[in-house]
Computed example of a mutant assay.
Amino acid sequence: MPSQSEKKGKLYIVGIGPGSVEQLTVHARDVILNADYVLGNDTYLDQIEELLTTQNIYRSSMGKEVDRAKEAVKLAENNVAVMVSGGDANVYGMAGIVIEVAESNNLDVEIEVVPGVTAMLASASVLGAPVVVDAATISLSDLLTPWEVIEKRLSAAADAGFIISLYNPKSRQRTSNFERAIEIIRKFREDSVPVGLVKNALRGDEQEYIVTTLGEVLEYNDWVDMRTAIVICNSDSRIWNSPNGDKIITPRGYHRKYEY
């Protein structure tokens, strides 16, 4: 067994962004390329396949997050191990469970979390400028969070006027949570409030987006899936029918102080 001073292990938890290699940070790319082991679920590993060359790869399916975290912690004791996570590893990502497992195992090697572009920001860049004021991210997955808690958060964020980004809106098992969320938000906001739906944000030709309103968004209910990020704006936001496609603008307040 190597002594403490001889250990070369390190654990990285890397946010790979919206899903294309071009959207990785330079540091995230370098970390993945130089790892001994790269761990992740099949979907995320497929998205960075061109970077997986000489590394040892540990694949598992969705729902196996705890198993992956345990394996990453074990491998990091004597290797450079990288756990990849979609978007940003802290925003509904793998950072939480991996560091919890590291704590419970008293892991004594360095842990570095490498940030990535989260879905709210990726989708906002497609939609124009919807998220330039205070915003809240709310996951509609009730797998780990009780729906009653999600309802309270939706109501509070809607009432407070936050821009709201909805994550995990729908899955095969959860078909009604998105509709229920919209019904809650409509209690606090006018139907004219702009809403943006972005599917496969920043993934090249796979990307699609829709600009609509809170009153009409459920017309696209069947279009929404787990690959869709939703941005629900506030009463200050407006839709710009640009010649190059509809965009959403949420003024930050410059118009109150300046002429332009």
Rank of each mutant, 00 (worst) to 15 (best):
P243T: 14
A157H: 07
G196P: 13
E179W: 00
L214F: 00
I99L: 10
A229S: 13
K247C: 11
D159V: 10
G93Q: 13
V133K: 14
V231G: 08
P130G: 08
V66A: 07
S3Q: 11
N177T: 00
H27R: 14
K10M: 10
G96E: 09
A181P: 01
R180L: 05
Y44T: 11
I13F: 13
N168I: 08
K7E: 10
L214A: 02
E179Q: 03
D134W: 13
A95M: 12
G86V: 14
G128Y: 06
A102C: 06
V224M: 02
T145M: 05
N106I: 15
G40M: 04
G15N: 12
Y37K: 06
K64R: 08
S125E: 13
Y58C: 00
D222K: 07
M94T: 10
D246M: 09
A28D: 06
L51I: 03
L121M: 14
K70P: 04
I97H: 05
E179C: 01
S3P: 07
K187A: 05
G9R: 01
R29H: 02
R256S: 12
A72D: 04
I239Y: 03
E6R: 10
K8Q: 11
E219H: 07
G128Q: 14
V80P: 05
N79D: 06
V132E: 08
I230E: 01
V113Y: 03
Y260P: 03
E208T: 02
V82I: 08
N56C: 09
G204Y: 12
L39G: 03
Y167H: 09
E100S: 15
A135L: 15
V26A: 06
G196I: 09
Q173G: 01
D88R: 15
D191A: 04
S104W: 07
D205E: 07
G161A: 11
L154V: 07
V98D: 08
R186M: 01
A229Q: 04
T228I: 09
R189L: 07
K74M: 10
L39V: 06
I150D: 00
D42W: 05
D225M: 07
A158M: 12
E151P: 03
E179Y: 00
N244Q: 14
A201G: 15
K64M: 04
A81C: 11
R252A: 04
F188C: 11
A136V: 05
T250W: 10
P18A: 15
R186Y: 05
I182H: 00
L154M: 08
G40T: 04
G215W: 04
S104A: 13
S104N: 14
I239S: 07
L218N: 05
M94V: 13
V31S: 03
A81F: 07
S123Q: 11
A89N: 14
F188N: 08
G204K: 13
T228C: 07
V84W: 03
Q23G: 12
N244V: 08
L24M: 11
E179T: 01
K8T: 13
L214K: 01
R252M: 02
L52G: 01
T175I: 13
E208N: 09
V126I: 15
Y258K: 08
S85I: 14
K64C: 10
G245I: 15
S3M: 06
N168H: 14
I163S: 07
E103N: 15
H255W: 09
R227E: 12
Y58G: 00
Q55Y: 03
G15C: 15
T54K: 01
E208G: 03
A124T: 11
S237F: 01
R174K: 09
G86K: 12
A158S: 14
